[in-house]
Amino acid sequence: MDALRTHQLSKQFIQKNGEPFIAVNNVTMSIEEGKIHGLLGPNGAGKSTLINMITGSCMPSSGEIVVFDNNVTDKTIQSKQVIGIVPQEIVIEMAFTVYEVLYYFSGMYGISYAERNKRIPKILEVLDLSEKAHERARGLSGGMKRRLMIAKAIIHKPKLLILDEPTAGVDVTLRQRIWELVRELNKQGTTVLFTTHYLEEAEQLCERITVLNHGKIVKNGDLKDIQQEFSKNLIRFELFDRNTTHLEEVQQVGMAYNYPIKNLRDDLDRIAAFYKDNLKSIRSEAASLEEIFLNLTSK
């Protein structure tokens, strides 16, 4: 079963100057149940808008969203019930304690009193917030607030967990903890959709990605397939001495160089002949997600 399906989904905003602006343009995608799916794209690509339409906080201009067989337009409540969302912005009820925030929020998902009082201490433990349970959320540090947002999103055990840049502005330790938790939840059967700035995170976490640019899908599919597709035409080599002239087609990527392949054998010969013993290493390389990303979204 698909955890999520969107069909020709679009969102048009009316800007301040009265001009329409298409933030999400005809997006058709799906996520199989049990998968971790990365949604990538530069700032302003429309990721959050897409997510907001899925969670029901933004009305689509056209198109369809189905969450576990519930069309969000006519089965809004049922679909909201199975979604957990960590929004991009940290917003917290300042007047309430950490415990109260979770208590009322999970209540709004219909979790019984007994169950709430059982789950909250556990979740606080997992997210290392137990000591803060009865303190006002106002006084939490940024990282703690972020963890509380995550606790809010998973307390009702959603079948589809959506995280909108959960690691933006978060230190390395917490980032790793967040992804560990996401993996753990995924193992227990939760389907995950997330966006991130850090491409290496996506590379490590998910099998499938969707790349958005200017509101449109520019790539959608298996990460491995996409990497292969891009690596087919790439030779990567390193040089001892980088102070040298280059072949015309060569691009510098960090400390290394990329060369687009026309004919692998000829090209290898050509590079070897040109750089001779300055050549430190050479191989045909799987493109990193970062390169793919730059390539796809540079237009």
């Binding site: 409540i77 049922q78 019930q81 007047a95 309430f96 109260e100 009322y104 999970s106 209540g107 709004m108 998902y109 219909g110 979790i111 019984s112």
Partner: peptide, 22 residues
């Protein structure tokens, strides 16, 4: 699907809000 407990929880939260500032 019954949302009685859902609604009641939101109600309780709002009551708690003014109780805190009674």
């Amino acid at each position: 699907m019954s949302v009685a407990l859902h609604v009641f929880s939101l109600y309780s939260r709002e009551v708690m809000r003014f109780r805190k500032l009674w």
